[in-house]
Design a protein around this nucleic acid. Structure first.
Lengths: 269, 269
DNA sequence: CCCAATTTGTTCGTATGTATA
DNA sequence: TTATACATACGAACAAATTGG
């Protein structure tokens, strides 16, 4: 456990509700329950990289002492962060910053299965990589100005050896400085793992919009389809903490043998 | 508050872990934390209809006394049920069985928006109603035997006056005894509200599988499309408590002006 | 409008159990 | 075996929201 880390978080100091002028009050946490202020402070530390993904947080008792709150209050904050998959708690071991690499997460966003329900980790082929400027649609999705520098990545996903998905990924160049075709191709895990390990960007959720349409010519070529055949178009905006967009992705899926699956799951408890 | 209701729940009686033989132990709750046993008992009461949807549960203090557990333990059980949207807690008022009619829920499953993001409650037209027997696909989805009696409902959904979705709904006849075309047409709310109010069936989650394809002839007629145009097919299995299927639905969506939206949202806390 | 009763929300603290290293 | 960390269970006190008088 690192005392340094705790010191960097800082205790939650708040005055009595009677006269706030006499005591220091964290500006954001006014009128907020104490456990929520603690939660925000912890989330801020995770976002800022004070605790790296996969790293252990200080123990509950240490954190409670560092924040100057009771163990129960600290637990409530940590519980909520756990429910949101920001951190992971393991009895007897400690509390860790989630890495989003745990396998289960692999199928959380893009979820394409064969018609019979077979799941498989897709094989990814890089088909294009270029630097360009954001068009209006990408800019709106990424909340940047049209014309800002972006990186465009073309991927082909194969399932059971069959080319099923053609991805066109748009990244804000300013967020992914130093990303090269070589570095992208040399990655070991998924592209989201690369965002995290190489650029410190954690994708925590996404919004997807889907429609049916005809396969564009380039996609038909990449997937080996007849041009104009019916395919699914999925536009995904991937978000990090605070719902800040980090990636805009247009996926075109050949659904003749596969399906796009959406489990509206309750949290499994 | 009804003492009767509490009596019907029954206290959680469990012996010390040392020698279980000396005290009565609820068979299902062996080795389970106490708060989980309480949660299961409450869930069972909700499922059994001991507390009707919308009805208030006894207060925390009464429930804690009825179960013979501390207020903290009772709260932990109730908190989890709240996180799963089984019940709803309102400070100063009480705890209520969720009705799933709260508006927010309307867009939880089927979520079709116009391209520009405009949401609207769909207008529903009943286009067919018949009793038949389950085919292999429906039977598998509903976990019944092929040939069992089912009810087939055809619906057309209009958004902004435009026919966008054609639904074919398959219900197990045994679960929806007394459902008639007249009763279906005379309902005031959504079809899921009818399931709940008229048949005591709460839909708590769903699984959807989507693909692109051509519009079938009957759908093209219902939606006013050219036959063979690209549309989205969504197969949904709606589930009640314990993941028991209650409805199988095949939706065909004209995505020329609208989109199927999937918000992979974290719980909003 | 205010007051009192009721109910959930928050915060504190302690003790003990269970999993891990 | 021992120490550490999270998990469970208990209970108390007060705050905040709601309702009804």
């Amino acid at each position: 456990m690192s005392i340094l880390a705790i010191d960097r978080i800082g205790a939650i100091v708040r005055g009595p509700p009677v006269n706030p002028a006499f005591t220091a009050i964290a500006p954001d946490t006014a009128g907020m329950p104490l456990y929520r202020a603690v939660k925000r402070a912890l989330l801020g530390a995770v976002e800022a990289g004070t605790f790296a993904p996969g790293a252990a947080l200080p123990s509950e008792t240490d954190l409670a002492r560092a924040f100057g709150v009771s163990i129960g209050t600290l637990r409530k904050a940590v519980d909520e962060l756990g429910a949101e998959h920001i951190i992971v708690r393991r009895q007897g071991r400690g509390t860790f910053v989630a890495t989003h690499n745990e396998g289960r997460f692999l199928f959380q966003f893009f979820h394409v299965e064969r018609n019979d329900g077979l799941r498989e980790h897709p094989q990814v082929d890089l088909v294009s990589f270029e630097r360009s400027r954001a068009d209006d649609v990408s800019a709106a999705a990424l909340q940047i100005r049209p014309g800002e520098p972006v990186i465009e990545i073309g991927n082909r996903l194969r399932l059971q050896g069959r080319a099923v998905v053609h991805d066109r990924i748009i990244l804000r160049a300013a967020l992914f400085k130093g990303l090269t075709e070589k570095r992208l191709g040399a990655r070991s895990g998924t592209i989201y793992q690369l965002y995290q390990s190489a650029f410190g960007i954690s994708v925590v959720r996404a919004i997807e919009r889907a429609r049916a349409g005809a396969a564009p010519a380039d996609t038909a070529r990449v997937l080996g389809l007849a041009p104009g055949v019916a395919v699914m178009h999925v536009h995904r905006t991937a978000l990090t903490f605070g719902d800040r967009p980090v990636e805009y992705r247009h996926s075109i899926i050949d659904t003749s043998q596969h399906e796009y699956v959406n489990l509206l799951a309750r949290p499994a408890r």
